[in-house]
């Protein structure tokens, strides 16, 4: 058995979990939600094992030294979906809001599906620039931060839907019906959003700092304004704005939720867009 096959199982597990959670919103059946959670948890366990297996596989390549499997796009996307599940499970164990799964699992599923279908999963031994423990620290902290932001984004979307429904429902205090009735209250969603960013922000900061430390260690410059670095700083600025927006009158609530969504869009751009899109714009320089 190879890690690639196991990752296929994981992708299917997250797909099933996603469908079940959406089914839960439609049917309101707690059993369906529990099944969804079961799929998500099993997927997570299998994925944890598969990442370990891939780590082992990197040692089996002839002439290679082995490395933590987080060093190319495929591996990082897989790791990203793992961290999303990790944060989701932490929230699930603590709060048990079942509807949150429907807004978080899609991110994990899309990441896995893209990795399995669209990315090159070859194990390539590390070139000298990447042979550093800093790489591992850097990737782990960044991606845990990204995952927290993914959860915050999902929760913010729920928040916006919820307050909109409440407004439409009339006086704003009566509970909204339908699917939205299954959501936690707007206050709780707002709080979850903040909690997720509270976890994500120090992790992102640590991710940027470990990246800078690594750059300094590898070539003597901790900051050089390259697009990837700059975009991580942009993301950082947005979430810093979010943190201050929450304590500013007139900026709490909806605007803060929008900032959280914009922040996650910027996160995704930092992670993927910089490599996939800006490279094109940059090609004239070469």
């Amino acid at each position: 058995m190879s890690s690639g096959q196991l990752f296929n199982v994981v992708t299917f597990g997250y797909f099933a979990a996603m469908v079940l959670f959406i089914g839960f919103l439609a049917t309101r059946s707690v059993v369906v939600a529990k099944l969804g959670n079961l799929c998500a948890y099993i997927g997570f366990v299998v994925q944890t094992f598969a990442i370990g297996l891939r780590w082992y596989e990197t040692y089996q390549v002839p002439g290679a030294n082995g490395y933590a499997p987080m060093s190319n796009l495929y591996e990082s996307v897989v790791f990203f979906s793992w961290t999303i599940l990790l944060i989701y499970i932490m929230i699930d164990l603590k709060y048990k809001y079942r509807a949150v799964g429907a807004f978080v699992l899609p991110f994990a599923f899309l990441a896995m599906a893209w990795a399995q279908l669209g990315l090159n999963d070859a194990i390539a031994p590390l070139v000298p620039a990447l042979q550093s423990n800093w790489l591992t620290y850097h990737v782990i902290t960044c991606f845990l931060g990204y995952a927290a932001f993914a959860v915050a984004c999902g929760v913010s979307i729920m928040y916006l839907i919820k307050v909109r429904k409440q407004k439409n429902a009339g006086d704003g205090s009566s509970p909204a019906g339908g699917i939205v009735g299954l959501f936690p209250s707007a206050k709780i969603l707002d709080d979850l959003n903040y909690k997720a960013i509270m976890i994500g922000f120090p992790l992102l900061s640590l991710g940027i700092i470990t990246g800078a430390a690594w750059a300094n260690y590898a070539w003597g410059t901790y900051w050089s304004w390259d697009p990837k670095e700059t975009w991580s700083l942009i993301v950082w600025f947005i979430y810093a704005a979010f943190l201050h927006a929450r304590i500013t009158r007139g900026w709490a609530g909806r605007r803060a939720a929008f900032l959280s969504i914009i922040g996650f869009a910027a996160t995704i751009f930092c992670y993927l867009g910089v490599n996939l899109l800006l490279a094109g714009l940059h090609s004239y320089g070469s």
Partner: peptide, 18 residues
């Protein structure tokens, strides 16, 4: 909030223009 968002938005320029 204004300066954080301005820094975020203007920083984009340097990532698009080499």
């Amino acid at each position: 909030i204004f300066s954080l968002i301005s820094l975020a938005v203007t920083s984009i320029i340097g990532t698009v223009l080499q």
